[in-house]
Design a protein around this nucleic acid. Sequence first.
DNA 1: TCTACGGGCGAACAGTGTTCGTGTCAACTG
DNA 2: CAGTTGACACGAACACTGTTCGCCCGTAGA
Lengths: 229, 229
Amino acid sequence: MNRKRGTSRDEWASQIAALEQGTPPARKEPITVDRIVTTALRLVETEGFDALTMRRVAAALETGPASLYAHVRNKAELDDLLIGTLSRNVSLPAPDAARWRAQFVDVCAQLRDQFLRYPGIARAALSAPPNNLDTLRITEGMLAILLAGGVAPQPAAWAIDAALLYVSAYTVEASLRGVVDRDEMLARLRMLPVSRFPHTVAHVDKINAGDGHERFEFTLRLLLQGLEG
Amino acid sequence: MNRKRGTSRDEWASQIAALEQGTPPARKEPITVDRIVTTALRLVETEGFDALTMRRVAAALETGPASLYAHVRNKAELDDLLIGTLSRNVSLPAPDAARWRAQFVDVCAQLRDQFLRYPGIARAALSAPPNNLDTLRITEGMLAILLAGGVAPQPAAWAIDAALLYVSAYTVEASLRGVVDRDEMLARLRMLPVSRFPHTVAHVDKINAGDGHERFEFTLRLLLQGLEG
DNA sequence: TCTACGGGCGAACAGTGTTCGTGTCAACTG
DNA sequence: CAGTTGACACGAACACTGTTCGCCCGTAGA
């Protein structure tokens, strides 16, 4: 590719080349933050958060890594944008004092499903929490639900914080669960010496139980049950 | 350092050199897993988990990174060893049915303090949980406390899981808290438009409140309060 | 028409985890 | 005591990572 001084001659040549190809102007559509974010999300969805690399995103956009830094300050900022986009996907209900607990659990479940859809992305959620405006939108919605339910502001704020932390930790662990499968871990638990781990081996089946997100909802209900006094 | 074929001549020279120095044989004490772990822990304690690098550990041991792989399979395994060592530092009480809640909270607080002492190491705890024998020792102890308190096995197992996840998430966030300070975040919260974030700005002081680990113990008590029926 | 500017991007820098092959010492064996 | 063996130490390199520098170029404004 001889790129020596682009005169009208080169332009002429590129126009002719454009005629030859199917796509009309063959002009590469410009890189935008949105294109970066959607590309990154697709990458995380298919290959996991560890595969989310500036180079991989750039390659998927058919460019070099340096091009991304005109639109995104950091990889950290990219991570923030991702969890912001995910947060924008959860819908907040109008607070209903009658069923505030169910509403709260539902919001958490939405967030959980968003995180589970993009394996490992919850690690990013644990590194950026309060700044993001989209995250604040969720906490505001949760606060509205709890206050409508008659919960005092202080316990409400702390419960929201705890719930969000739990959702993140739960999804981080869940996306890790794919690596080591259940049966293998169950077998290892059974190998434990009964002398040192009596209760663990006695209830090994209870420990690993929990089809679907039974465990998840159990914890949240436990958290909410103690509220409102 | 001429290292050409170490004959008895070199040995002789090194013995003489040993005489000159204070330390008797000047023989580099061999690398062991323990030395690696303690060095790594010191590194994390002073510079944080991000500074924990195979190269940094090797440099602190005055060697190259390749030397570590004779004793540690992975960096992941090193991380596991670290959280194992930390777990070994928490002492488990003999279950007392009368004060099972306090005992449970105390164990969690011990783990929390261990994690807080080594900033960021909780991220490693979120990536290795159930395999480690030392972690299982803690869950066994917790299970003993809860069962002694009259909690049913299934809720007990789930509550333990939830508590451990919360401790990890809490400490991860806490070690991040050092980067962005409270006042700055509080100021940003006050800038929010009241139209969109009415409850958040109304109770901004409650949100950020919680001297010490008030928030931490609040959440755990909330979790335990719902148990035992 | 000329100029300035901002995005695109190749190349490079400083790190990272990990492996290969070679060295070198210690202890067991004949 | 001599010789071999095997485990450990480690320099160098590989394939990556995030990030920056500086150049090119196309468009917009004067």
